[in-house]
Amino acid sequence: MFKLSKESEDFVKKELSRYEAKYSAIIPSLFRVQKDHGWVPPEAVSVLAKLMEIPEAHINEVLYFYTMFNKRPVGKIHAQVCCNISCAMNGGRELADALCKSFNVQDGVMSADGKITVSRVECLGSCDTAPMMQVNDRYIENLTPELAVRKLKEMGA
């Protein structure tokens, strides 16, 4: 059963009055849920809807529109490898494949031990340092497959 922590509930309430429009609090609130749980479980939608007095369908629309919200569990380490044009030209796709192989996971699917998810993503705006990836909140740039594997292992993957 999904439950929002007291602190998160307070956060949501504060966000509700932070912006000119109440609905603007949806994105920050979903991010908060994701911060607490690693992803946004479907039950969170009803819980937020009740707390924020915003229709469920509306919150769900927002949740499913934006790709940064994880609609299913992700690993403790979420390696998002850019495969857009400049990275693709510099081996971004091969990097993603190498990571999937090295950690024995499928693109976008969490490893069995819950440690890592490798996802291919679109341009992250770090094209001069291609190929690169975003691990949780931060960018790791100028990668080779070997370097990326090593860095992720150092982080505990």
Binding site: N84, I85, S86, E122, C123, G125, S126, C127, D128
Partner: peptide, 11 residues
């Protein structure tokens, strides 16, 4: 919201 592939100046 700098998202155009190839752009990284605003960041």
């Amino acid at each position: 919201d700098e998202g155009e592939p190839g752009t990284f100046k605003d960041r």
